[in-house]
């Protein structure tokens, strides 16, 4: 029963991810009116990256997040010019979030040079349980360098909307008090030009990140901001 629920949830996350990318593609189509400029969602258009290249880049969110020390954190200004990987999740997540974070921690652990300074931002969407303290403890288990952010639900939803991602859905509490949290599962990669040109679905491995991170730092993205 539990497995079935988890499977359904993962399926939802995958579907939500695809839907979000579809939405980005739709926006791109509508904005450009030219099929060649549409969101690139097939493998040939991903430029050799392990993620999915967007036809229409997204700006860093400017929502009023709070970091794990309780201080305000503006992603757009605090990480400007830096390669930044951003994901939305929750500290009680049993599958996608810990795997994503473990893979990123393992990737960055042995890297040197500029790619080793990649910022990883984890936004806790389960605002009841993802307190700054809980987030810090959770992230420190992977890497003390990971940045933990949270905010009021409406602020998080606004940021998700800005990033063309579906809203968070908090399930009804069960008898034991637990509840399911449905959230986007992609990792958004903001490159030094302060735009997100590419999102990474669940399933990207350490060796793929190691190949992609140096490329993300130096890749000369075509100007598609219109």
């Amino acid at each position: 029963m539990r497995d079935s629920r988890m499977g359904n949830r993962r399926a939802f996350l995958r579907t939500a991810g695809v839907a979000a990318l579809g939405a980005v593609g739709a926006v791109s189509l509508a904005a450009c009116g030219d099929e060649s400029d549409s969101a690139a969602t097939n493998e040939d258009d991903n430029l050799g990256f392990a993620g999915t290249v967007l036809g229409y880049p997204l700006a860093r969110p400017s929502a009023a997040f709070v970091d794990t020390s309780g201080a305000p954190f503006n992603v757009a200004t605090e990480t400007a010019g830096k390669l930044t990987l951003m994901l939305f999740g929750y500290t009680s997540c049993p599958d996608v979030c810990p795997v994503h974070l473990n893979v990123l921690a393992g990737t960055l652990e042995d890297l040197h040079g500029r790619e080793a300074r990649t910022k990883v931002i984890f936004v806790g969407v389960d605002t009841k349980r993802d307190t700054p303290e809980a987030m810090r403890t959770y992230l420190d288990q992977r890497s003390p360098d990971f940045i933990g952010l949270t905010a009021a639900p409406d602020v998080i939803d606004e940021a998700l909307k800005q990033l063309m991602l579906p809203s968070v859905i908090i399930g009804e509490p069960r008898a034991d008090g637990s509840y399911v949290v449905e959230h986007p599962s992609q990792i958004l990669a903001f490159t030094p030009d302060d735009l997100c040109h590419i999102v990474y679905p669940f399933g990207v491995r350490e060796n793929e990140w190691r190949t992609d991170l140096p490329r993300l730092l130096d890749y000369d993205w075509p100007d598609t901001t219109r």
Partner: peptide
């Protein structure tokens, strides 16, 4: 194993 749900949260694949 790298992408499997974790049995012990901090016991990573490596």
């Amino acid at each position: 194993y790298e992408l499997a749900p974790r049995v012990f949260p901090t016991f990573d694949a490596q």
